[in-house]
Nucleic acid binder design. Structure first.
Length: 418
RNA sequence: GGGUAGGUACCGAAGUGGCCAAACGGGGCAGACUGUAAAUCUGCUGGCUCACGCCUUCGAAGGUUCGAAUCCGUCCCUGCCCA
């Protein structure tokens, strides 16, 4: 049941979905993509899960494969040991080799939810740049690539300039772009890879790779960058009150993941459909044609689609059902997908403060925080606003075996009393 | 290596002996208005305590003082300039 692309030319398709930011040569790339080819996208193994900031490149890989090309998924085992300075204002902490390996495997597993890895002509291939960068000899490396890099040119790259203005970068980080450039040249030789895709902040690194391969091998490579995902209100994309929205359910439960998409601004709906779903754009246009309140079903659909892609249809259905009940007319928080946990009757008997319960539910970080929430009128117990900071919770508050606490309109937690 | 300016809470940035848990801005959370939207307005934004209050926090560990984010010496780190 693969979704059928509305056009088989990847470049056209990506453009229509708003997924192209910059490219080295629009006509050339369109022509290139008329035939099956191998292209690569790199991911940094800085954590054992990707977050939704990486979703755009992942969708890029997805479409690459759907359009009959061969995606090379590069996990930066070597570059992860250095840390990409692009788009950062301060250097990252260095990872150990064990961390990098562990993270690389976890990330590959997440990508495999959307991209098929096998040996067929369009099967994705997982590669790790530590395999070729890790064994390079310093002198050989310098002689091979050193003459082809101009320091003046490198200093003029945005990724470097930004860091210099923000207080400087280390030699270690400065080498990151050399490594990435080397990767591209290497993948051209080893895998016949001719196009590199990446985030907008990768533009400089991609261009350096193209130039290196041209100078060393006379190769004609191309690059395309995806747009930086922005929010209509100017805030950072992909953050919630708890931090990043991750793809792993341990870090971001499905409910929270679903709600993130459900709560986006009106102005972002259409664009996000293009970026993060596989729905044909004609259908997206129909879904988002309505404005105002009528856009709510489209938001729900968006949340369902993205959740389905990442966590599977079962989880998406459950999350949608739970949200409808919990935020709909009935305020029914009994669905399984609503965040919940056990509460012992003994605890209730011993007397438990409402504030402590909020902390236990993860809706407040401390008793003081919980009391502030109560004082501000944002805390609810079984759908009743509680204004008394000293309120204690007893067996009398158990309704049909549950106690539901809410912080504001959007955050809730259900205790199953046993 | 020399000179110089700095290191303050999530971020930026005031404070330069007591009135400092620390101004202000951003961010975040909550309330009102709404459509689980945006914009706007309002409140809150270290921990513990029913509370008087207590505890921890201003790069690090010390010292001076009745009292230190603020003064002193040492160390670590960063920017800039010079070599």
């Amino acid at each position: 049941m693969p979704d059928v692309p509305e056009t088989t030319n990847l470049f056209e398709l990506l453009s229509a979905r708003g997924l192209v930011s910059q490219c080295t040569d629009p006509d050339g790339i369109r022509a290139r993509l008329a035939k099956p080819l191998a292209a690569y996208v790199g991911f940094d193994p800085t954590a054992d899960s990707l977050h939704i900031g990486s979703l755009v490149p992942i969708m890029g890989l997805y479409w690459l494969q759907q359009c009959g090309h061969r995606p090379l998924v590069l996990v930066g085992g070597a570059t992860g040991l250095v840390g990409d300075p692009s788009g950062k204002t301060e250097s990252r902490t260095m990872l150990t080799r064990e961390d990098v390996n562990h993270n690389a495997n976890a990330i590959a597993a997440q990508i495999a939810r959307l991209v098929r890895f096998d040996d067929s002509p369009t099967g994705a291939k997982l590669i790790n740049n530590v395999d070729w960068l890790g064994t390079l000899n310093w002198i050989e490396m310098l002689r091979a690539v050193g003459p082809h890099f101009s320091i003046n040119r490198m200093l003029s790259m945005d990724s470097v300039k930004g860091r210099l203005e923000a207080g400087g970068m280390t030699f270690l980080e400065f080498n990151y772009m050399v490594m990435q450039a080397y990767d591209f040249a290497h993948l051209h030789r080893a895998e016949g890879c001719t196009v590199q895709f990446g985030g907008q902040d990768q533009w400089g690194n991609i261009v350096m790779g193209i130039e290196l391969a041209r100078r060393t091998d006379g190769a004609d490579l191309a690059g395309v960058t995806f747009p930086l995902v922005t929010k209509a209100d100017g805030g950072k994309f992909g953050k919630s009150e708890k931090g990043n929205i991750w793809l792993s359910t341990e870090r971001t439960p499905v409910h929270e993941f679903f709600q993130f998409w459900r709560n986006i601004a009106d102005a972002d709906v259409r664009r996000f459909f293009g970026f993060f779903t596989t729905l044909p754009m004609t259908e997206v246009d129909a879904l988002t044609a309505a404005g105002g309140e009528a856009l709510n079903p489209a938001k729900e659909r968006l949340a369902w689609e993205v959740t389905r892609l990442i966590h599977g249809q079962g989880a998406a259905d459950a999350a949608r059902e739970a949200a409808r009940k919990a935020f709909g007319a009935g305020h029914d928080a009994t669905a399984d997908a609503v965040p919940h946990g056990p509460l012992a009757t003994a605890d209730l008997a011993a007397g438990l403060s409402f504030a402590a319960l909020l902390v236990k539910a993860g809706l407040a970080t401390s008793n003081s925080d919980a009391k502030r929430l109560i004082k501000g009128g944002g805390a609810q117990l079984n759908d009743a606003v509680i204004a008394d900071e000293q309120r204690s919770v007893t067996a009398a508050d158990v309704v049909a075996g549950h106690i539901v606490v809410r912080a504001g309109k959007k955050r809730l937690f259900r205790f199953d009393v046993a």
